[in-house]
Nucleic acid binder design. Structure first.
Lengths: 188, 188
DNA sequence: TGCGTAAGCGGAACAACGTTCCGTATAGTG
DNA sequence: CACTATACGGAACGTTGTTCCGCTTACGCA
């Protein structure tokens, strides 16, 4: 087998630029949505586009990197909700939280749902991070007899993402169509 | 008031090119999806892009024009389903049909859901044509007590569109998430 | 401390897109 | 048959994402 892990030396300025890029991207995404041009992000970071593309193979990976921490937090919340609420209620609360996360990020849902291969990294990220979280919630609620069994977590996750493009109503009420979907889980 | 309708003379070759463009667009959309480049459509029709853009202000209008007849047919089917089936069943059948229509058109749902202003004409078309059709189905089913009242037809239409990007399963089973949504309509 | 080298950088350049523009061609009329 | 409004083709423009490469610079070693 080849050298397992040759001591990679990462230059300090490279590490620095990577951080700067992430911060800039977060700023720009908030201001102009995830569809903001790569050049705008590079400019905001004060680097050239070449630098951006050395750190991220494409825009989607950058988007994914920016939202990773927030996604991790959302995933983590599944466990704590499950510990403090009845399974069905925990499921609802978590879905609502996820809905708000998606709706909050201007253009995130559009990117998720575009089917554009350029954004493949995003579904992959949600799948790997949020899939298991939702699976645990579904399993608990299903075991408690609160929802029908046999619902595919990834399919549901994708569906909720699909439905979450509208901004959440200010009073905290979740999207009515998501509500409908959740009610459907309880039928039969 | 100004001249109400000065006898416009439409040149024969213009009318001809318009038809050719529609046929070409239908062909190309089927082959390469609705995201196919405008140039590809113009080439298929054997005309220049300028001609395309004189007949349609933008790509979205062309897409809308291509699907108009099919959309009209779908809308019309609401009435006939309502005449031959119980309201709830008619609703399910129609939604399934709509689902298949969207899933069949490669990239149509992506366009619908993209939020891209370039595709504004599409939601407008569905809204005006299919909205009333779905409204009649919902009203009938609701009056029969088969579903909950107060569901916004346009919201539901959009939601089903959002969920219909996967190809329909060959056995004719509708998308499970759409199924869930429909079950949700029956809850309470 | 200074130097050589690879890691890293900037931004010009490329390809693909939607859309606009305008010189040229022609359908239809008198 | 000639004239003109109508329509046409396709080059050109502005914006994308992404690639490429000559130059810069960090940093391990002497």
């Amino acid at each position: 087998m080849p050298t397992p892990d040759p001591p990679r030396k990462v230059r300090a300025d490279a590490r620095q630029n990577l951080d700067t890029l992430l911060v800039a991207a977060r700023t720009v995404f908030a201001r102009s949505g995830v569809d903001a041009p790569a050049r705008e992000i590079a400019t905001e970071a004060g680097v050239g586009v070449g630098t951006l593309y050395r750190h991220f193979p494409n825009r989607a990976e950058l988007v994914a990197a920016v939202f990773t921490t927030e996604i991790d937090a959302t995933a983590a919340e599944a466990a704590s909700l499950l510990a403090t609420h009845p399974p069905g209620e925990a499921l609802d609360l978590w879905i609502t939280r996820f809905t708000r996360f998606v709706a909050t990020k201007q253009g995130l849902s559009a990117a998720l749902r575009s089917g554009d291969p350029a954004y493949d990294a995003l579904p992959a990220l949600l799948t790997s991070k949020l899939g298991p979280a939702l699976a645990s919630l579904l399993e608990a609620a299903s075991a408690a007899g609160e929802i029908r069994p046999g619902v595919d977590p990834l399919e549901l996750l994708q569906a909720v993402g699909d439905l979450s493009h509208r901004a959440p109503s200010p009073d905290g009420t979740p999207n009515p169509m998501v509500r409908l979907l959740l009610d459907g889980l309880r039928a039969q």
